[in-house]
Design a protein around this nucleic acid. Structure first.
Lengths: 93, 93
DNA sequence: ATTTGATATCAGCACGAGATGATGTAATCA
DNA sequence: TGATTACATCATCTCGTGCTGATATCAAAT
Protein backbone atom coordinates (compact mmCIF):
# COMPACT_ATOMS: atom_id res chain seq x y z
CA UNK A 1 0.00 0.00 0.00
CA UNK A 2 3.05 2.18 0.52
CA UNK A 3 3.50 1.59 -3.19
CA UNK A 4 0.68 4.06 -3.80
CA UNK A 5 2.45 6.81 -1.90
CA UNK A 6 5.42 6.59 -4.26
CA UNK A 7 3.97 8.34 -7.28
CA UNK A 8 4.61 12.12 -7.16
CA UNK A 9 1.16 13.10 -8.35
CA UNK A 10 -0.54 10.78 -5.87
CA UNK A 11 1.66 12.17 -3.12
CA UNK A 12 0.56 15.65 -4.10
CA UNK A 13 -3.09 14.61 -4.05
CA UNK A 14 -2.67 13.19 -0.58
CA UNK A 15 -0.90 16.32 0.61
CA UNK A 16 -3.77 18.43 -0.71
CA UNK A 17 -6.37 16.21 0.93
CA UNK A 18 -4.49 16.53 4.22
CA UNK A 19 -5.67 20.15 4.26
CA UNK A 20 -9.24 18.97 4.25
CA UNK A 21 -11.72 17.17 1.98
CA UNK A 22 -11.82 18.38 -1.60
CA UNK A 23 -13.54 17.39 -4.80
CA UNK A 24 -12.01 16.28 -8.07
CA UNK A 25 -12.17 19.72 -9.65
CA UNK A 26 -10.07 21.17 -6.82
CA UNK A 27 -7.41 18.54 -7.31
CA UNK A 28 -7.41 19.03 -11.06
CA UNK A 29 -7.02 22.77 -10.62
CA UNK A 30 -4.34 22.60 -7.93
CA UNK A 31 -2.18 19.95 -9.56
CA UNK A 32 -2.54 21.11 -13.15
CA UNK A 33 -3.03 17.50 -14.22
CA UNK A 34 -5.75 16.40 -16.61
CA UNK A 35 -9.03 15.30 -15.12
CA UNK A 36 -8.95 11.65 -16.29
CA UNK A 37 -5.51 11.34 -14.81
CA UNK A 38 -6.68 12.58 -11.42
CA UNK A 39 -9.71 10.32 -11.55
CA UNK A 40 -7.51 7.33 -12.28
CA UNK A 41 -5.27 8.05 -9.32
CA UNK A 42 -8.26 8.63 -7.06
CA UNK A 43 -9.60 5.27 -8.06
CA UNK A 44 -6.39 3.56 -7.01
CA UNK A 45 -6.32 5.44 -3.72
CA UNK A 46 -9.97 4.58 -3.14
CA UNK A 47 -9.42 0.88 -3.89
CA UNK A 48 -6.59 0.85 -1.38
CA UNK A 49 -8.70 2.50 1.29
CA UNK A 50 -6.47 5.56 1.51
CA UNK A 51 -9.32 7.89 0.62
CA UNK A 52 -13.11 7.71 0.64
CA UNK A 53 -15.45 9.28 -1.91
CA UNK A 54 -18.50 11.23 -0.77
CA UNK A 55 -20.85 12.16 -3.62
CA UNK A 56 -22.58 15.51 -3.12
CA UNK A 57 -24.87 16.19 -6.03
CA UNK A 58 -22.71 16.26 -9.10
CA UNK A 59 -19.57 16.81 -7.06
CA UNK A 60 -17.55 14.06 -5.49
CA UNK A 61 -15.70 14.96 -2.34
CA UNK A 62 -12.67 12.94 -1.37
CA UNK A 63 -11.48 12.57 2.16
CA UNK A 64 -8.23 11.13 3.50
CA UNK A 65 -8.45 8.09 5.80
CA UNK A 66 -5.96 8.85 8.58
CA UNK A 67 -5.99 5.29 9.88
CA UNK A 68 -4.59 4.03 6.58
CA UNK A 69 -1.66 6.43 6.77
CA UNK A 70 -1.07 5.54 10.39
CA UNK A 71 -1.01 1.86 9.53
CA UNK A 72 1.68 2.50 6.96
CA UNK A 73 3.59 4.66 9.41
CA UNK A 74 3.36 1.91 12.01
CA UNK A 75 4.81 -0.57 9.58
CA UNK A 76 7.84 1.63 8.99
CA UNK A 77 8.27 2.31 12.69
CA UNK A 78 8.19 -1.41 13.37
CA UNK A 79 10.90 -2.04 10.78
CA UNK A 80 13.03 0.64 12.41
CA UNK A 81 12.46 -0.88 15.85
CA UNK A 82 13.43 -4.37 14.68
CA UNK A 83 16.50 -3.02 12.91
CA UNK A 84 17.65 -1.35 16.10
CA UNK A 85 17.07 -4.44 18.20
CA UNK A 86 19.04 -6.70 15.85
CA UNK A 87 21.64 -4.15 14.89
CA UNK A 88 24.43 -6.12 16.58
CA UNK A 89 23.47 -9.49 15.18
CA UNK A 90 25.05 -9.65 11.71
CA UNK A 91 24.63 -12.89 9.78
CA UNK A 92 27.65 -15.06 9.13
CA UNK A 93 28.79 -15.64 5.58
CA UNK B 1 12.38 8.70 -0.38
CA UNK B 2 9.22 6.74 0.28
CA UNK B 3 9.44 6.12 -3.43
CA UNK B 4 12.20 3.63 -2.75
CA UNK B 5 10.04 1.59 -0.42
CA UNK B 6 7.54 0.98 -3.21
CA UNK B 7 9.44 -1.63 -5.19
CA UNK B 8 8.63 -5.16 -3.97
CA UNK B 9 12.20 -6.40 -4.16
CA UNK B 10 13.53 -3.37 -2.30
CA UNK B 11 10.84 -3.85 0.32
CA UNK B 12 11.98 -7.45 0.71
CA UNK B 13 15.59 -6.37 1.06
CA UNK B 14 14.63 -3.92 3.78
CA UNK B 15 12.57 -6.53 5.57
CA UNK B 16 15.55 -8.90 5.50
CA UNK B 17 17.90 -6.22 6.80
CA UNK B 18 15.49 -5.50 9.64
CA UNK B 19 16.52 -8.90 11.02
CA UNK B 20 20.08 -7.68 11.27
CA UNK B 21 22.96 -6.66 9.01
CA UNK B 22 23.62 -8.97 6.07
CA UNK B 23 25.92 -9.03 3.08
CA UNK B 24 24.99 -9.04 -0.58
CA UNK B 25 25.28 -12.79 -0.92
CA UNK B 26 22.69 -13.31 1.80
CA UNK B 27 20.24 -11.04 0.05
CA UNK B 28 20.89 -12.70 -3.30
CA UNK B 29 20.28 -16.09 -1.76
CA UNK B 30 17.18 -15.14 0.23
CA UNK B 31 15.44 -13.22 -2.52
CA UNK B 32 16.40 -15.45 -5.43
CA UNK B 33 17.19 -12.35 -7.48
CA UNK B 34 20.32 -12.00 -9.58
CA UNK B 35 23.34 -10.41 -7.97
CA UNK B 36 23.58 -7.33 -10.24
CA UNK B 37 19.95 -6.64 -9.56
CA UNK B 38 20.46 -6.71 -5.81
CA UNK B 39 23.56 -4.55 -6.11
CA UNK B 40 21.63 -1.99 -8.13
CA UNK B 41 18.89 -1.79 -5.55
CA UNK B 42 21.40 -1.55 -2.73
CA UNK B 43 23.01 1.34 -4.51
CA UNK B 44 19.74 3.24 -4.64
CA UNK B 45 19.04 2.50 -0.99
CA UNK B 46 22.56 3.59 -0.10
CA UNK B 47 22.28 6.83 -2.06
CA UNK B 48 19.05 7.61 -0.22
CA UNK B 49 20.62 6.94 3.16
CA UNK B 50 18.29 4.06 3.95
CA UNK B 51 21.18 1.63 4.36
CA UNK B 52 24.89 1.88 4.97
CA UNK B 53 27.58 -0.36 3.50
CA UNK B 54 30.30 -1.80 5.72
CA UNK B 55 33.06 -3.56 3.75
CA UNK B 56 34.54 -6.55 5.58
CA UNK B 57 37.27 -8.09 3.47
CA UNK B 58 35.67 -9.15 0.26
CA UNK B 59 32.23 -9.09 1.77
CA UNK B 60 30.06 -6.00 2.06
CA UNK B 61 27.68 -5.88 4.97
CA UNK B 62 24.60 -3.72 4.71
CA UNK B 63 22.85 -2.24 7.68
CA UNK B 64 19.47 -0.50 7.90
CA UNK B 65 19.42 3.10 9.09
CA UNK B 66 16.46 3.22 11.51
CA UNK B 67 16.40 7.02 11.58
CA UNK B 68 15.61 7.12 7.86
CA UNK B 69 12.62 4.84 8.30
CA UNK B 70 11.45 6.84 11.30
CA UNK B 71 11.65 10.04 9.31
CA UNK B 72 9.41 8.54 6.64
CA UNK B 73 7.05 7.24 9.31
CA UNK B 74 6.92 10.67 10.89
CA UNK B 75 5.97 12.21 7.57
CA UNK B 76 3.02 9.85 7.21
CA UNK B 77 1.95 10.37 10.81
CA UNK B 78 2.00 14.10 10.26
CA UNK B 79 -0.21 13.80 7.19
CA UNK B 80 -2.66 11.71 9.20
CA UNK B 81 -2.66 14.25 12.01
CA UNK B 82 -3.35 17.15 9.65
CA UNK B 83 -6.10 15.20 7.90
CA UNK B 84 -7.81 14.60 11.23
CA UNK B 85 -7.52 18.21 12.27
CA UNK B 86 -9.02 19.53 9.03
CA UNK B 87 -11.49 16.71 8.53
CA UNK B 88 -14.48 19.01 8.98
CA UNK B 89 -13.22 21.80 6.73
CA UNK B 90 -14.18 20.77 3.20
CA UNK B 91 -13.37 23.24 0.45
CA UNK B 92 -16.17 25.01 -1.38
CA UNK B 93 -16.68 24.36 -5.06
C1' DA C 1 51.50 -14.88 -9.02
C1' DT C 2 47.39 -17.10 -10.30
C1' DT C 3 42.99 -18.33 -9.21
C1' DT C 4 38.71 -18.00 -7.01
C1' DG C 5 35.00 -15.71 -4.96
C1' DA C 6 32.19 -11.46 -3.67
C1' DT C 7 30.63 -7.34 -5.31
C1' DA C 8 30.14 -3.30 -8.31
C1' DT C 9 29.28 -1.24 -12.81
C1' DC C 10 27.69 -0.91 -17.53
C1' DA C 11 24.74 -1.42 -21.84
C1' DG C 12 20.68 -3.10 -23.68
C1' DC C 13 16.07 -4.79 -23.42
C1' DA C 14 11.32 -5.54 -21.98
C1' DC C 15 7.46 -4.54 -19.56
C1' DG C 16 4.27 -2.00 -16.83
C1' DA C 17 2.50 2.24 -14.99
C1' DG C 18 1.24 6.88 -15.88
C1' DA C 19 -0.56 10.26 -19.21
C1' DT C 20 -3.80 11.57 -22.79
C1' DG C 21 -7.95 11.97 -25.93
C1' DA C 22 -12.34 10.40 -26.71
C1' DT C 23 -16.45 8.91 -24.85
C1' DG C 24 -20.03 7.60 -21.41
C1' DT C 25 -22.96 8.78 -17.31
C1' DA C 26 -25.35 11.32 -14.00
C1' DA C 27 -26.97 15.50 -11.93
C1' DT C 28 -28.10 20.39 -12.23
C1' DC C 29 -29.77 24.39 -14.74
C1' DA C 30 -32.00 26.86 -18.65
C1' DT D 1 -36.56 18.83 -22.86
C1' DG D 2 -32.07 20.14 -24.09
C1' DA D 3 -27.72 21.98 -22.48
C1' DT D 4 -24.06 22.11 -19.36
C1' DT D 5 -21.13 20.70 -15.73
C1' DA D 6 -18.56 17.26 -12.86
C1' DC D 7 -16.84 13.01 -12.97
C1' DA D 8 -15.77 8.16 -14.46
C1' DT D 9 -14.23 4.84 -17.83
C1' DC D 10 -11.94 3.13 -21.92
C1' DA D 11 -8.23 2.48 -25.51
C1' DT D 12 -3.91 3.79 -26.73
C1' DC D 13 0.69 5.46 -26.45
C1' DT D 14 4.92 6.69 -24.31
C1' DC D 15 8.52 6.48 -21.32
C1' DG D 16 10.75 5.33 -17.17
C1' DT D 17 12.39 1.62 -14.28
C1' DG D 18 13.68 -2.87 -13.19
C1' DC D 19 15.97 -7.02 -14.97
C1' DT D 20 19.67 -9.35 -17.26
C1' DG D 21 24.26 -10.73 -19.30
C1' DA D 22 28.74 -9.31 -19.71
C1' DT D 23 32.55 -7.27 -17.66
C1' DA D 24 35.50 -4.85 -14.20
C1' DT D 25 37.42 -4.62 -9.50
C1' DC D 26 39.27 -6.06 -5.38
C1' DA D 27 40.38 -9.23 -1.65
C1' DA D 28 41.46 -13.75 0.00
C1' DA D 29 43.24 -18.27 -0.86
C1' DT D 30 46.21 -21.52 -3.22
Amino acid sequence: MIRLLADPLRAQIIALLADGPACTCHLVEDTGAKQPNISNHLRLLRDAGLVVAEPHGRFTYYRLVPEALETAAGHLTDLARRARARSDAPRKC
